[in-house]
């Protein structure tokens, strides 16, 4: 069944859509007072930090994951 499923994900379209959103969001940030955009952003980031308490990797596993990632990424 899985073999017969059509792959409909269009990576390029997804990339364009994300970039469109970044520009849209940038315009909004530029228009509103600092307290407005930063309050929305803080709510979002605080929820991510709260959720990170559920992170299940050990420090060793996390470092291994980062090490593998950095081998495929140019980094400072």
């Amino acid at each position: 069944m899985v073999e017969n499923m059509e792959l409909v994900f269009d990576r390029e379209a997804n990339r364009r859509e994300r970039l469109w959103f970044v520009r849209y969001y940038t315009d909004w940030v530029r228009k509103v007072p600092n307290r407005v955009w930063s309050r929305e952003q803080a709510k979002f980031i605080d929820s991510l930090i709260l959720n990170s308490r559920n992170f299940y990797l050990s420090p060793e596993e996390y470092l291994k994951m980062k090490e593998n990632g950095s081998q495929v990424k140019k980094k400072r």
Partner: peptide, 18 residues
């Protein structure tokens, strides 16, 4: 967004700290 930008300083007043 209101920021003050000079050669070596950027000021962001009233930013809610996350």
């Amino acid at each position: 967004m209101k920021i003050e930008y000079t050669q070596d300083t950027i000021s962001i007043e009233d930013k809610v700290i996350s």
